[in-house]
């Protein structure tokens, strides 16, 4: 899936035969780019008013991969994630420069309508946020507003497959008309995932999807993410390095608005090539 470039010298070597990049150097190290990417981000700067939240981030999101983004609080990973489906549009003072492409199309281009875009790039939020409606209506809402279902049977089928994909079907198939807000936290989050995949997106963005869940619910969602990878590209922001290690193929480390290091998850966690990454994953700060 990913071609190794000359940048990752000595990947297979046991001993370190490369220099660890010093803390002062904020250029991205590792392999930010992949062949045949689903999304490409180039030179992204994000400003909140006069304050710059993200500096010059370039990274690709591959097909059928899980890219996890880690880093200390306030490092800009959530901000970056929200740029990917233009959720930051709703914040008046937020300004974005650079180029983000989905399948080669600039999503910030003038001709792009943000409404269908968000159907293509779904999002799951930190706090489970089902609509205060029935379970069925929660999942059916997206297909309904986008006109994806020709009739009721069609819609029923979409709802069922989405809930099955989200691993929720068995638990709730007998109480579809009950409020989605009455489910447990983990179930709610999987309901939100079902809602996101009901509109058949290409990419799913997840903003700390397990931070409000207990370990068992977290395990459910993590299994689900691994399952969903077969069909979708997934970008996940997480505070848990173990989670990043468990679910993702590539990991990106953000630090104060800079993308410090991107690489295969295993390599980033075992052989970080930037001093800041090493500091973070060894628990020296953050």
């Amino acid at each position: 899936m990913m071609e190794q470039t000359e940048e990752i010298r000595g990947e297979k070597s046991e001993t370190r035969d490369w220099e660890v990049v010093s803390r002062e150097d904020r250029r991205t190290v590792g392999i930010p780019f992949v062949d045949n990417p689903r999304m490409t981000c180039r030179n992204i700067d994000v400003y909140y008013g006069d304050e710059q939240a993200i500096q010059d981030v370039s990274v690709d999101i591959g097909n059928n991969e899980v890219l996890s983004m880690i880093g200390p609080s306030g490092c800009g990973k959530s901000t970056f994630l929200r740029c990917l489906n233009r959720m930051n549009d709703t914040i008046d003072i937020c300004r974005i420069t650079g180029e983000i492409c989905l399948d080669g199309m600039d999503i910030y281009g003038g001709e792009i309508d943000v409404v269908p875009l968000r159907a293509q790039i779904g999002m799951v939020f930190q706090k489970p946020n089902p609509f205060p409606k029935s379970i069925y209506d929660n999942v059916a809402y997206g297909p309904k507003i986008h006109g994806l279902a020709a009739n009721k049977t069609d819609l029923d089928e979409i709802v069922e497959t989405s809930l099955k994909k989200a691993g929720l079907w068995k638990e709730i198939k007998d109480r579809m008309d009950q409020p989605g807000t009455g489910l447990s936290g983990g179930q709610q989050q999987r309901l939100c995932i079902a809602r996101a995949i009901a509109v058949s997106p290409e990419v799913i963005l997840m903003d700390e999807p397990c931070s409000a869940l207990d370990p068992i619910a977290t395990a459910h969602v993590e299994d689900l993410i691994s399952e969903l990878r077969k069909q979708y590209s997934i970008v996940i922001v997480t505070h848990s390095m173990q989670q990043a290690a468990r679910v993702s193929q590539r990991t990106a480390y953000f630090h104060l608005g800079d993308l410090i290091e991107v690489g295969e998850t295993e390599r980033v966690f075992t052989n970080p090539r930037h001093q800041l990454t090493e500091d973070y994953i060894t628990g020296r700060f953050g």
């Binding site: 489906n85 959720m87 709703t90 409404v115 269908p116 875009l117 968000r118 159907a119 779904g122 999002m123 799951v124 939020f125 946020n129 089902p130 609509f131 809402y141 997206g142 507003i145 986008h146 939100c192 809602r195 996101a196 009901a198 509109v199």
Partner: peptide
């Protein structure tokens, strides 16, 4: 956010 996130206008 939930509504906007799945593409509601």
């Amino acid at each position: 956010e939930a509504a906007l996130g799945i593409g509601a206008s």
